[in-house]
Design a protein around this nucleic acid. Structure first.
Length: 122
DNA sequence: AAGATGACTAACT
DNA sequence: AAGTTAGCCATCT
């Protein structure tokens, strides 16, 4: 019989894990790359998250735009087409920008849960 | 095969 | 505030 895979997770499995975390981000919320990596069980692999998102099949309809950098900003060059596209998608969901950054605490999935439990007024 | 690159981040200067 | 250094690791040249 064939033995089990010597490596429990292939790179494709890791990508799938990342995609699963990204697709779990609720509407109107954002997460930064490092957090997505942590939630996917790979702390410190922030760069891999950006890579995984870029390679995700369109078929998945991944909410890639809900992932921003640790400063609460969009990691594309400001003013570029991708930057504008991502920003509009976020704003259309109710995510507010202060200049060019988002309050990560306020728009975290954790806070979304609090709103459901306690209401928008806290 | 070896070095550069990048949708990153945290720590330090 | 802005630049540097170090850690990360799959991909690309």
């Amino acid at each position: 019989m064939t033995a089990e895979k010597p490596v429990p997770e292939s790179q494709d499995d890791r990508y799938k894990k990342i995609w699963a975390v990204v697709s779990s981000i609720p509407e109107g919320c954002v997460l930064n790359y490092g957090e997505v990596a942590r939630l996917a069980g790979m702390p410190g692999r922030a760069r891999m998250v950006g890579r995984a998102i870029g390679r995700a099949p369109k078929k998945l309809k991944l909410p890639w735009f809900r992932v921003v950098n640790a400063q609460g900003g969009i990691s594309f060059k400001k003013g570029s087409a991708p930057y504008t596209r991502q920003r509009k998608l976020l704003e259309s969901e109710g995510v507010e920008f202060d200049q060019d950054t988002i309050d990560l605490q306020r728009f975290s999935p954790e806070q979304a849960v609090d709103r459901l439990l306690w209401g928008p007024d806290g």
